[in-house]
Amino acid sequence: MLDVAINAVYFMLSLALLFAFIRLTRGPSLADRVVALELIASVVVGYVGVHAIDTGVSSFLDVAIVIALTAFLAAIGFARFLERGGLKNE
């Protein structure tokens, strides 16, 4: 029963990753693309978390934390970029 649930979660995360990648490539604005990158990072954290549950290796959770912190710092960097004026040609 647990294998079915884990496979269902993997499938849903794969769909979310696909839709986020579509938004990343077709996003009309820079902000849409950055939000898509944040979503991709969150989905990857979900993948790593589910893999940690599936395999029973808790050290994968440390990897998920590092990925989440890196994505958070990227979001802060983008917010600072927009606060300072963003791209000058837009």
Rank of each mutant, 00 (worst) to 15 (best):
S59A: 11
F72H: 02
M1H: 12
D62V: 09
E83D: 10
A20H: 03
F78P: 01
F78C: 02
A8Q: 14
F60C: 04
G77R: 04
L13P: 07
F78I: 03
T70K: 00
G49L: 15
I53H: 10
V4R: 14
S59N: 08
I53M: 13
G49K: 07
G86W: 06
L17I: 06
I6V: 15
F11T: 13
V9I: 15
L87C: 01
V35N: 00
L87Y: 10
S58T: 14
I22E: 03
V4P: 00
D62A: 11
T55Q: 10
D32M: 00
S42F: 04
L61S: 13
R80L: 10
A5N: 05
L73M: 09
R33M: 02
L69A: 14
A68C: 07
S59R: 10
S42V: 07
L61P: 07
F19V: 04
A5S: 09
L39H: 06
I40F: 01
V4G: 05
S29Y: 01
V4F: 13
G86A: 06
H51I: 11
Y47R: 06
D54L: 03
A36D: 04
I65T: 14
S42W: 01
I40W: 01
I40M: 10
A74T: 08
T70Q: 01
G85M: 01
I22F: 05
L13K: 08
D54A: 15
